[in-house]
Write a protein that binds this DNA or RNA. Structure first.
Ligand code: MN
Ligand code: MN
Ligand code: ZN
Ligand code: ZN
Lengths: 144, 144
DNA sequence: GTGGTTTTGCAACATAGTAGCATTTGCGCC
DNA sequence: GGCGCAAATGCTACTATGTTGCAAAACCAC
């Protein structure tokens, strides 16, 4: 659509992964980059609609899957049934997350790494550690 | 059904939580106690059927929910769409889990606690930390 | 601009979980 | 042991989330 040769951050990320720069991909990635929390498929679809970007439910699923497979985004399975997607502004995904047990919100904690003092039982081979902190987000306060 | 006054481990756990001792609850809890890994709703339903214990899909969902709400069992949302349930043999649920990215199996790592060196951004209130280690289980080996 | 490949849109399907309500069952009490 | 009542179950129907197959459209290397 644009004949610019100057690429946006989202466009660069997409081409860097060897993917085609499509309207939906760019818009979704920009939404995720701008978000201060992880978003569900539904929330992202809504945001697209608000921007007047016509799209199909299935295409959005596939777009999100592609972003995850490419390592650009991360996917979190929460307590509710919806997976949440997000991108870490800085570099590839290697950080902890905070999950608000009240409102379900999930945020990336970028400067936080688990000091996992692990000695696994024999035979288990460790690839990565996933740390999720549970509690109340600032908005939800927590009265007790 | 039994007129014994001697309670099984499962039965004691159930009454300790103020719940009624029903056939399904006892059987489910015994299945979970005997399992060396977390089980899906479907796997548990199959195990019940194999034991000739007639049950309803919805009842099983409610039984599992009750076990989780009572703090007897834990629920894990995996990458596949199914939640997995398990009980920690020792005491209430406060331990890490290992998730095999090959076969999807989830096991409790009872003697393992994350040394989370956390300083959360202001306003976040921490309740508990959830640590999931990802990799290959002994069975899946890992060729590379 | 053309051609081949990737991505999309649509329709149908699959899976996991939930809600309402009548019936049954466990169990405290006598 | 039997009563009464709350808790738990079984059914049916429904919702939400995600998947598959395939033809049409869009990208982009050339
Ligand atoms: Mn993240
Ligand atoms: Mn566990
Ligand atoms: Zn919150
Ligand atoms: Zn495995």
């Amino acid at each position: 659509m644009s004949t610019h040769t100057h690429l946006s951050a989202a466009e660069s990320l997409i081409t860097a992964q060897g993917g085609r720069v499509t309207r939906t991909r760019v818009a979704v990635l920009e939404i995720l980059l701008a978000a201060d929390q992880s978003l569900t498929h539904d929330e992202i679809g809504l945001a697209l609609a608000e921007q007047g970007i016509k799209h199909d439910r299935v295409t959005l699923y596939r777009t999100l899957d592609w972003l995850v497979e490419s390592g650009v985004a991360h996917k979190m399975a929460g307590d509710d049934r919806a997976r949440r997607f997000g991108v870490a502004a800085s570099g590839p995904h290697e950080h902890a997350h905070f999950h608000c047990d009240r409102c379900g919100k999930v945020v990336c904690l970028e400067g936080l790494q688990p000091a996992v003092a692990v000695n696994l039982p024999g035979g288990y081979q460790l690839d990565r550690a996933e740390l999720v902190l549970h509690g109340a987000c600032p908005t939800c306060g927590k009265g007790a």
